[in-house]
Computed example of a mutant assay.
Amino acid sequence: MPGPHAARGGQPTLRDVAERAGVSAMTASRVLRDDPQVLPATRERVRAAAAELGYRPNEVARSLRLGRGTGLVGLVVTNLANPFYSRLALGVDSVVARDGLKTVIGNTGQDPDAERTLVADLVARRVDGIIAVPAGTDQRHLAQAAADGVPVVLASRPPEGFAADCVLVDDFGGARDATERLLDRGHRRIGFLGSPPAVHTGTERLRGFTAALASAGLTAEPRHIRQGQTEPHQATRAAAEILALPDPPTALFCSNNRNTIGAFRAIRSSGTDIALAGFDDFELADALGLALTLVAYDSDELGRAAGRLLLDRLHDPRRTARQIVVPTSLVEYGG
């Protein structure tokens, strides 16, 4: 006869399994922990009862009773709509899963307050570690999590105000190389579409862009620069504003895939013939019918590197913080 929880239609308990099998709760627990000392007939009876009731052990509670973590890794990202973050998550999960850990993802929407709340919630839930793409430069909540004993690894942006493992992309070098490619093709008026100024990647990519111009004896024109776009529709509007100027640029460099997609739409709508370059390769870039130079890198490797850094930190909490930089390359698509 089913136990009280099963009879009410709730989640069956270990006691329900024990009653169904006709054994004590301790014996049922020993069976489900694969204790070899339990008699085979008893083991079969308990397992059959668990299967009939649909019993699933609470692994989190069991781990905490044994003094272990929850077996969960928190991945904090800023924009789940961006395919970059899905690749990052796949890379993280492919590595931590080998250690029996599972990845839970939280989205902050580029909101520092939401990030603080999410990190606090992950710490309260006793995750084994946190991999975060910070929304801004105020990282005191991440520093506090690390001080409280939760290993923290940063991805795509470096730590501010505390020591932590991090994995970055060569943002400066990639942007400089793409801008130099446009300069080599004769462009002297080049516009820039980028992320909010507080975002490390956008700042570094703007720095690489302006450094390439400076090396060619040029200065970035403020009226040709727009920052703050996080979604394609915002980038489309920003690009349209630049293209409508009396002296529009002959080329645009975009600091991420969302801005590149938005700029492409503006170029197509305007009917202008303008060169386009951007950071982040993306699906269907080769099918746009436009000459396109993209800065490519392995976003899965960014996640894998972050996962490896976290596992190393879990196995050796006292080791020196490390920084890994993922290299970039240029990819050309013909129009």
Rank of each mutant, 00 (worst) to 15 (best):
G174D: 05
A212L: 11
A50M: 14
R223V: 13
P2L: 06
T117H: 06
H224N: 03
G228L: 15
L75V: 12
I105F: 12
S255V: 07
H187C: 05
R15E: 08
V169F: 04
S270Q: 14
V96H: 00
V127P: 02
R318F: 02
L310I: 08
Q139E: 01
V167A: 00
T78W: 02
V169H: 02
D165Y: 02
Q110L: 12
L182Q: 11
S269N: 11
Y55G: 01
L32C: 13
L330V: 05
P159K: 00
G67W: 02
G106N: 08
R33K: 10
V199I: 15
I324D: 01
P158G: 10
T250I: 01
G69F: 03
V60L: 06
D247I: 11
I190V: 03
Q144M: 09
G194I: 11
A285F: 06
Y297H: 13
N79L: 12
D165V: 05
S270T: 15
V152R: 01
R207W: 03
A263H: 03
A306S: 14
A212H: 01
A155L: 10
R125N: 15
G303D: 10
L292I: 05
R125D: 10
D99T: 00
A164H: 01
K102C: 00
T272N: 12
P197C: 08
G202L: 14
V77D: 14
A81N: 13
G69W: 02
A266N: 09
L309C: 09
F264C: 02
T117F: 01
I274S: 09
G303F: 03
A163H: 01
F253V: 03
G129D: 01
R237F: 09
N79C: 08
P317H: 06
E231H: 13
G71S: 04
A296R: 13
R68E: 00
A285M: 14
H315M: 07
V104W: 01
T108W: 13
P159V: 03
A239F: 13
P112T: 00
P159A: 10
